[in-house]
């Protein structure tokens, strides 16, 4: 790789991206007196006390567990319902298919704020308020259309002859789908799961409105802490850093697929 002038620009841009994140990390390993006392680029006395606070206080760490649970449920539901639907969209014409597809996409584009109150009423009336499944279902509003969209792109890239050969060989649809088709689009499923994870993990408004205690996600814990006690910056920063970790891990695992997923142009 020859070093060129344009790489300097790239490095500068990445520095711009990383600086605020570094600052958050920097604050998370400082004591509160150092944060408020002086402007230091590197902490004088690095401490893990802020992280210890979070990992030992159930009010904090249960937030992470809750978030993980509803994100996982959401990814599973989204993939399970989107796989057959994406197959239908990529292989068949049927009455209203294009309008259905457009309608699904509008849900990806609709502002969650619009659905806030009805969701609250809906889940309260069926007794699902403050459960993980409620948040997972609410996030399906934008993740299912997204999953259908991405998967349809990947499936369209698989030649139809494969289906036909399999049917001639006497495969039933479920057997063909499970044993031949799904392995073929493994990378597509990976990319889809990544994006479902991403959008469910970063969402705050619905997750916060639909939970109060038992299923309270970490993102809600953070905003409520800010408004309540407010100024424990070190712990807040540590909590922030910990929310970045799962995302960073997931990116690392799918780094080679990301470009491909984006190449489908369907995020």
């Amino acid at each position: 790789m020859r070093f060129q002038k344009r790489h300097i620009a790239l490095i500068l841009y990445i520095l711009f991206l990383l600086l605020p994140i570094y600052w958050l990390f920097n604050m998370s390993i400082k004591t509160n007196s150092e944060i408020l006392g002086a402007m230091t680029l590197f902490p004088d006395n690095p401490t893990l006390a802020n992280y210890a606070t979070i990992l030992t206080d159930p009010a904090w760490y249960s937030g992470y567990i809750n978030s993980m649970i509803y994100v996982a449920i959401n990814v599973v539901i989204s993939l399970a319902v989107a796989l057959p639907a994406a197959y239908a969209f990529s292989r068949f014409n049927f009455v209203g298919d294009k309008h259905l597809f457009f309608w699904l996409l509008t849900n990806r584009m609709a502002p969650p704020a619009v659905f806030l109150l009805p969701f609250f009423q809906l889940y309260s009336s069926v007794g699902l308020f403050d459960t993980h499944i409620a948040v997972a279902l609410a996030h399906c509003l934008f993740n299912v259309p997204l999953a259908v969209w991405i998967l349809e792109g990947f499936m369209s890239g698989i030649p139809k002859e494969i289906d036909e050969t399999a049917y001639i060989d006497g495969y039933s649809f479920p057997r063909f789908f499970g044993t031949i088709f799904i392995p073929l689009i493994r990378s597509g499923i990976g990319v889809t799961a990544f994006f479902c994870f991403m959008f469910s993990w970063v969402e705050l408004l619905l997750a916060r409105t639909l939970t109060s205690v038992d299923a309270k996600p970490i993102v809600a814990t953070m905003t409520r802490t800010v408004s309540a006690s407010g100024l424990d910056w070190g712990v807040l920063a540590a909590a922030g850093v910990l929310t970045i970790v799962p995302g960073a891990l997931v990116i690392w695992f799918v780094r080679n697929y990301i470009a491909k997923g984006f190449a489908m142009g369907r995020v």
Partner: peptide
């Protein structure tokens, strides 16, 4: 580059 996309919005 993808890192900022994966950070929860409130963070």
């Amino acid at each position: 580059l993808a890192l900022p996309l994966l950070i929860p919005w409130n963070v």
